[in-house]
């Protein structure tokens, strides 16, 4: 009742302070855009020359950057790796999360749970060198190997998330289906898997952000195979940009753009996913 009378008051000083603070977020992006749109001749040595609006709009840098960094191939590789990793992770990790989560009262499964989850503490630095040898021996020093490794690396976190979420799904739901004669396997895909949808979203967001931006794994595993991911291309072609910063920044912008566009459309979903994952 009282709420209707009192008009909601906004705290304007804080709002304004927060808007001013946004400069720290926007400035690097603004700088990137301005440099990417300019030609080297427009870049005088003063800051104003670098940061001012370009005199004429030209997308020549972007075309050149796409050519130099083999943009479309790198984008395709990044998208392929991310999509497959996310897809396989959701299928496999939810499945093992289910098998473990429903059997936590048994010692063996409890051990399996602790075994997988403790993998979270293993830094990539210690696995890196043996994995390079191992993947090369197995013929996995390529995209397939990278995806496989991601599926393994994200298993601890995702199993933790799925088993945690499974506690909220009553076992009675499955028992009802079992009475009707459905196998455990079928029950899982028909009943449990769809019920875990909110957790699938969280897992997808966290896994996708991690793999999309990762440099180290493709760097050490795929270095022999002429293939690039989007961030890896930036690293590998860094020397080719030379002192042509306009070209380099056009390329940086291109590398950031896909995820920025994606974020624009799925912002709420991404934020929810990140919070869910971190808090649980």
């Amino acid at each position: 009742m009282r709420k209707e009378k009192v008009k909601e008051k906004f705290n304007w000083p804080i709002t304004i302070l927060l808007i001013i603070g946004l400069v720290t977020v926007i400035f690097p992006l603004y700088m990137t855009l301005m440099i990417a749109l300019k030609q080297p001749s427009e870049m005088t040595n003063s800051i104003s020359g670098i940061l001012s609006l370009p005199s004429s709009l030209s997308f020549a840098n972007f075309a050149e950057a796409m050519r130099v960094t083999d943009f479309w191939h790198s984008l395709f590789n990044s998208a392929l790796i991310t999509l497959l990793t996310v897809g396989i992770s959701i299928l496999l990790h939810s499945l093992i999360g289910y098998a473990i989560g429903r059997n936590m009262n048994q010692k063996g499964y409890k051990l399996a749970y602790l075994y997988i989850v403790s993998g979270m503490f293993v830094p990539f630095a210690i696995l890196m060198m043996p994995l390079v040898k191992q993947t090369a021996q197995m013929g996995l020093d390529n995209i397939v190997g990278v995806i496989l490794l991601y599926v393994v690396f994200y298993m601890p976190m995702n199993v933790l998330l799925y088993t945690g979420y499974l506690k909220n799904i009553p076992i009675a739901l499955e028992e009802a289906a079992t009475v009707d004669g459905a196998s455990t396997w079928k029950t899982y895909w028909k009943i449990i898997f769809p019920l875990m949808k909110p957790m699938h979203a969280t897992v997808a967001v966290l896994t996708a952000l991690g793999t999309w931006n990762d440099v180290m794994t493709p760097l050490v595993i795929m270095s022999g195979s002429e293939m690039n991911t989007l961030p890896l291309a930036q690293l590998n072609f860094q020397t080719q940009f030379g002192t042509n910063y306009n070209l380099a920044f056009a390329s940086y912008l291109l590398a950031l753009l896909p995820i920025l566009i994606f974020y624009l459309f799925c912002q709420k979903w991404i934020l929810n996913g990140v919070v869910n994952g971190a808090v649980k």
Binding site: F10, N11, I14, L22, Y263, Q267
Partner: peptide, 24 residues
Amino acid sequence: SKIKFKSALRGMYFIPNILGALVV
């Protein structure tokens, strides 16, 4: 706190986290 443009501001402040560390 009770600010205007709450969700827009929250969304904007999160941007750095989605960007790749190497390019940043």
